[in-house]
Computed example of a mutant assay.
Amino acid sequence: MTDEIRPTALTPPSGCALGWQPSALAPVFWGWREYGPTDGAPTRVRVFHPSIDSTPNTAQLLSGCGRYPLIVFAHGYCEQDDNHYQRWVRTPAALARSGYIVAVPELPNIHVHPAQSPGTQQVLASTVTWMRQGWPGKEVLLPAAKTGLAGHSYGALHAGILATRIQVAAVASLSGVWNDWQPGYGTKPIHQGTVPRLLTWGTDDPQATLDAPTWNAIAKPRHRAVYGGADHYDYFPYNQDLPCRTSSGACPHVGIATDDLLIMFFANYLPPELWPDLPSRIPNNLVPPPLNLPPEQGFYAGGHLTGLSTFNANSSCSLALSVELPLDKTVPHVREMLRHQADQAVRAAGLVPVFTGSTSPAAWVASQSPAGGTKVVADSAVSMTMQSGPLP
């Protein structure tokens, strides 16, 4: 059974309207604004933000509570749907509740293959620049390195291309049609760089289904979510009339399950400013832990991180999750060190110290597991048994 999570974070400035900065484990409400060329934006763009107001279209940006990472979401192609970027509401709203600023730009010529559409790619890149230089709320954004990208279908390919050109912290691909990437286009963007990636697709979506060689060529860390019987547009609500949707899978909850995974993915690799310990609280498989929130936080948390549990409760829904992490941390040799020395050495290695045995200030490490020199994934535990008395 998964342990309950009681969220902790650094205390926000005194001017914050709340006692915490919103995050995946302590959400708030959300709001949105639409901008366009008259505002200096390169295209029409909807920006979703955290808020404590309950009416999204008038909700004010929650500022003064710490800075937020920027996530830019690239929509895909939907024939005869002129304002397709406006279809993406639930997903960016879920991320905004979790402490992110999410920009969803309208991408021109999205029907053209991303490898042959430099103009569309420039609009996406210019949106990132405008958010940091021209968006009225730019002061709440963390530095440029704290940027996430996500996209659906052709939008996922555009996000992947942009990730090879600017510094980003994490990239998510929702049914990116990577099998439509021809050899003449060069190396697939998902095979370039070492940025953490989440890729999702349905088994009834052949253009997005990655075979083993393609998947294995993606650098670690890599996360994968494969929905049984799901189709290309199943991320949208089933009651939403999409002109490009000709079929749907049997499970109606693919979208809300994916929202949960996206929240956990970005929380792990791109936490808000005042949540430095958030990655250590996110399970590697991205399955949300149960929350035990105090009343003042629970007030804002209705429906938050319930998508995957709703999905799992439906017999028509199935999901295969996998994660592969790099073994890039080395366990230090800490035997015979004093507790404070061992604690410092283990933390400096990017690992988590766990002590048992003597609590004496003069106690030393009698044994450790794993042994010094072992290669492990980041945030792995190093167990140390403490002993008092003279060293052997």
Rank of each mutant, 00 (worst) to 15 (best):
P206L: 02
P206M: 10
Q207H: 13
T209A: 12
L210P: 02
L210I: 12
A212L: 15
A212F: 14
T214E: 15
W215K: 03
A217G: 06
I218N: 00
I218Y: 04
I218D: 06
I218M: 02
I218S: 01
K220I: 05
K220G: 05
P221C: 06
P221L: 00
P221W: 04
H223F: 06
H223G: 06
R224A: 11
Y227K: 11
Y227C: 00
Y227L: 13
Y227F: 15
D231F: 04
P237L: 07
Y238F: 08
Y238L: 12
N239T: 09
N239R: 06
D241T: 15
L242W: 03
R245M: 03
S248D: 06
S248L: 14
G249Q: 03
C251Q: 10
C251F: 04
H253K: 14
T258F: 10
T258Y: 14
D260K: 11
L261F: 12
L261D: 03
L262T: 12
L262V: 13
M264Q: 11
M264K: 00
M264S: 03
M264H: 08
F265K: 02
F265R: 02
F265N: 05
Y269P: 08
Y269N: 01
L270M: 02
P272K: 12
E273S: 07
W275K: 04
W275L: 04
W275Q: 07
P279W: 00
P279K: 11
S280W: 10
R281F: 07
I282Q: 01
I282Y: 05
I282E: 04
L286W: 05
V287I: 12
V287W: 09
P288W: 04
P289C: 09
N292R: 14
L293N: 01
L293D: 00
L293K: 01
L293F: 03
P294A: 08
P295H: 13
P295R: 13
E296F: 03
E296V: 13
F299Q: 15
Y300P: 03
A301W: 01
G302M: 12
H304R: 04
H304A: 10
T306F: 13
G307C: 05
L308Y: 00
L308C: 11
L308W: 07
S309K: 03
F311N: 05
N312T: 15
S315I: 02
S316R: 15
C317F: 07
C317Y: 02
S318V: 11
L319G: 09
V323G: 06
E324I: 06
L325A: 04
L327N: 01
D328G: 08
K329Q: 09
P332S: 05
P332W: 09
V334L: 02
V334S: 05
L338R: 15
L338F: 15
R339C: 01
H340I: 13
H340F: 14
H340C: 13
Q341D: 12
Q341G: 13
A342N: 10
A345N: 04
V346P: 00
V346N: 09
V346E: 08
V346D: 02
V346Y: 05
R347K: 15
R347L: 13
G350H: 09
